[in-house]
């Protein structure tokens, strides 16, 4: 088990290194472009050369990469071109905001979709199952930007219940959190629900559940003790991978609600070609994604005794 965890972490580090090389290749392979992006299109040739000289861009590629990697590892991501401050100064607060949004979303979505999924899968083909399935398929079909528009139209413009933007500029406001989280929940819960349902329905038809029923166990015990544990192994992985999806979702939602989060920052950086900020954001995003995948893999093996003890 320990070896397995070690292997997974090793693979995670390897992935990060490969991603960093790719990013570096993509963004910094030609120093001339970097200088143009940093100093702007109206800078003179001379200015750019001076800047490149000062920032060590005439060194060979691999030397630059390792220097960059070293800075990166020590938390020095360079300065943002657009915000004119060190990247770290804007990155961490933004990441914090997104974490709040993500946690709020997960705190509602996971219990909701697990309960719905298990209820639907427990009695496959029942009315409850059919209604849950239809609702979840419809909500997954509405993209986040569309549901953001529709929900805003109803809750903000018609009913005047909630603020339409969530900039959090005057400090944290729980009301401003509701809309973005709601949009993310509506889009994502259907998927997790359907996965849970499929897994539960499958487990309910297995022979060992039949064995449990024919042993004369109470239905509650059959479901809680025999079915649930096996049925939740697959959704666990799905849920962990949702974090990866959520990272995509927050970009749209934060952009729409002008929420000062990590997703909006990444988008802004890309649109403005703010290269150090892009690098930092992309590395952070990939790190979060790879780390959750690692946890998912390790957790999966832990939940599944067939793998744990082989």
């Amino acid at each position: 088990m320990l070896i397995f965890v070690g292997k997974r972490i090793g693979f995670m580090i390897l992935t990060m290194v490969v991603v960093s090389i790719l990013l570096f290749l993509l963004l910094e392979i030609t120093p001339g472009n970097v200088a143009t992006k940093v100093l702007g299109p109206y800078s003179s040739e001379e200015q750019r050369n001076l800047w490149l000289e000062a920032h060590g861009y005439f060194e060979p590629f691999y030397v630059r990469y390792f220097a960059w990697l070293g800075n990166f590892a020590s938390g020095d991501f360079g300065d943002s071109v657009r915000f004119k401050v060190p990247v770290a100064d804007i990155l961490w607060p933004r990441l914090g905001n997104t974490a709040i949004l993500g946690i709020a979303t997960f705190a509602v979505m996971i219990p909701l979709s697990l309960i719905l999924g298990v209820l639907a899968g427990m009695r496959e083909g029942s009315k409850l199952d059919r209604s849950i399935s239809i609702v979840s398929i419809v909500t997954t079909s509405v993209p986040e930007f569309a549901s953001a528009v529709l929900i805003t139209a109803v809750l903000v413009f018609w009913l005047h219940l909630l603020p339409g933007t969530s900039t959090m500029s005057d400090g944290f406001d729980i009301l401003q959190l509701i809309l973005p989280a709601l949009v993310l929940i509506i889009y994502d819960f259907g998927y997790v629900t359907r996965m849970t349902r499929a897994s539960m329905a499958e487990v309910m038809t297995t022979q060992y559940v039949r064995t449990a029923i024919l042993k004369g166990l109470p239905y509650r015990r059959v479901v809680m003790r025999h079915a649930l544990r096996n049925a939740l192994i697959a959704p666990f992985t799905v849920i962990m991978l949702q974090i990866n999806w959520l990272l995509s979702g927050v970009i749209v939602v934060e952009f729409f609600f002008a929420y000062k989060g990590f997703g909006a920052l990444l988008l802004e950086a890309s649109l403005n070609q703010d290269i150090y900020l892009i690098e930092a954001c992309a590395m952070v995003a990939v790190f979060v994604a790879v780390a959750t995948q690692t946890i998912a893999d390790v957790g999966y093996t832990y939940l599944n005794p067939r793998i744990r003890f082989s």
Partner: peptide, 17 residues
């Protein structure tokens, strides 16, 4: 595995940008 470890939209934004 490496491509899939990117959040999809981040990948799209990077590529399109």
């Amino acid at each position: 595995d490496i491509i899939l470890s990117f959040p999809v939209l981040v990948l799209y934004i990077l590529i399109i940008a």
